[in-house]
Design a protein around this nucleic acid. Structure first.
Lengths: 277, 277
DNA sequence: ATGGGAGTTCCGCACAGCGAAAGATACTTT
DNA sequence: AAAGTATCTTTCGCTGTGCGGAACTCCCAT
């Protein structure tokens, strides 16, 4: 039982499409496939037909037909007989809420995020890794200019954002390398920048306690980030603070906001550091 | 033992009418079971062990073991080796966001909800049915804008709320009866009230275009609701407007807010705006 | 130490779920 | 209108997946 969670946690945690040739007797394929179907509904693809799902997932049409049938039956997909297309259904949203409602880190973090967002008029967010993305768990904005009400749940890339870098940098080396490898395979052209950014983030975390992304994700967005471990030490989150580059200078981030983020992260972490690694 | 009950009841709670109880060759059991595992994580149960999941779902321990293993692998569950318990993972949240981001009704409804919530200082929400619950798809509050996105995705009962009644009342009779029957089985003691409320809602919708729930869900909450069909006519949503009974009188709801809700519902259903074809 | 409870692994069997191809339906094209 | 095209569903045997009882391991309590 030596090779346990580290490997499996990283094993399929990357990308759809190819099912890794694991003879894992513990792995339930149909479940994974069904979830892959749900995952096919991305930002740009609010509605999909069976054909499109089959293409995106690489599964055969009859399989898709059965899976969608099942998912509709359970309320995770809605079917429009009008145009033969599916949409994500209410069941999926209820699950998402249950997830966020049960997250104690979020509860504890929220007042601090609000405080910082309001006092410095920046965007503050907490996120977690999901495969090769970061998912926003919570988000506070300074001035309610344009209220894009909830990007809680939205994804941003892992490699180029301050949030992603903070998390990658804090990850055990093995897992980090696994993820970097997956990114290199998937987007070889972006990889050099990604790798460089992550290496820099590791150094920054060592020296100053927070890492940066100045224009690396969107070139008009600056942000600083810190990692935060859950109380039981099993989950790794990231905390960022950022804004448009013409509002938010790198100096402010480096000298004021970064340190404040570090301080918040300290308060969020367990009172006693039990780093048994 | 009687383990068939919960599972099948839950499965069919979405699909009304002539679902032949014959072994549905289209139905992928493992997928349904896996999703049932995720669903076991309710409001009160942020973390669960395998044993508890097995009890809640009625599945055998080895089966749960395999399903949780798979779900952890895919990022839909997080596992804490510390105490051997699971939590919903980030993947689930990303799905929820994709669902809500792809909902055009929500986009179109939002400005109207905000407007009404602000001008009348009430809570306005849009929801959809998920099995025997209503799931909030969006929610605007009048004055206290503190917790805005928090209860998106949260569930309220189908039978006693204005939202649930609006949807039940507008449903095809067969489906409505199917759901009522399911509710009678599951909560026989509450059923008489539920049935009465729904019958009343049907009458109210006919006569005044909106239905009511005055203290029937929480006895200090008043609300009025209307059904809204999606543009393609395939999905049925509900719109409510409500607040605490000491702030929001039944008269205001009946004479002012109810009609305004009806008007909003009309604008949501009618695609003929200032469109130049 | 010792017992009990929780979780995982073994194992053979049944049948769930798979995919090629045929059938059904809706939507275009000529 | 009729043939053509694209999409989705159903059929049908075969295979291998996933199932559960029982045995095994681990972790806490006491």
């Amino acid at each position: 039982m030596t090779r346990r969670k580290l490997e499996t946690a990283a094993s399929r945690a990357t990308d759809p499409g190819v099912s890794p040739d694991t003879q894992d007797r513990q792995f339930v394929t149909s479940l994974a496939r069904g979830l892959e179907v749900l995952r096919a509904f991305g930002p740009g693809e609010a509605t999909l037909g069976n054909q499109e799902i089959a293409e995106r997932t690489g599964l055969s049409k009859p399989t898709i037909s059965r899976l969608t049938h099942t998912l509709v039956d359970l309320g995770y997909l809605s079917y429009s007989a009008r145009n033969g297309r599916y949409q994500l259904g209410p069941g999926v949203l209820a699950l998402g809420y249950a997830m966020i409602a049960g997250l104690e880190v979020r509860e504890r973090a929220r007042p601090m995020l609000e405080d910082l967002a309001a006092s410095a008029n920046v965007t503050v967010a907490i996120g977690e890794r999901d495969r090769l993305n970061i998912v926003y768990l919570d988000c506070c904005r300074g001035s309610q200019t344009v209220a894009l009400s909830l990007n809680v749940g939205s994804r941003i890339p892992l490699g180029s954002t301050a949030l992603g870098r903070a998390i990658l940098a804090k990850l055990p080396a093995g897992e980090r390398e696994y993820l970097l490898r997956a990114m290199r395979e998937r987007m070889p052209e972006d990889y050099p920048k990604i790798e460089h950014g992550v290496e820099q983030a590791i150094r920054e975390l060592e020296t100053q306690g927070f890492c940066t992304s100045f224009g690396d994700w969107r070139n008009d967005v600056n942000a600083v980030g810190v990692p935060v471990a859950s109380l039981d030490g099993e989950r790794l989150f990231g905390l960022i603070c950022g804004g448009p580059s013409f509002t938010l200078s790198t100096e402010t981030l480096m000298q004021d906001l970064g340190p404040r983020l570090v301080e918040i992260a300290g308060r969020l972490s367990a009172p006693r550091q039990v780093t048994a690694d």
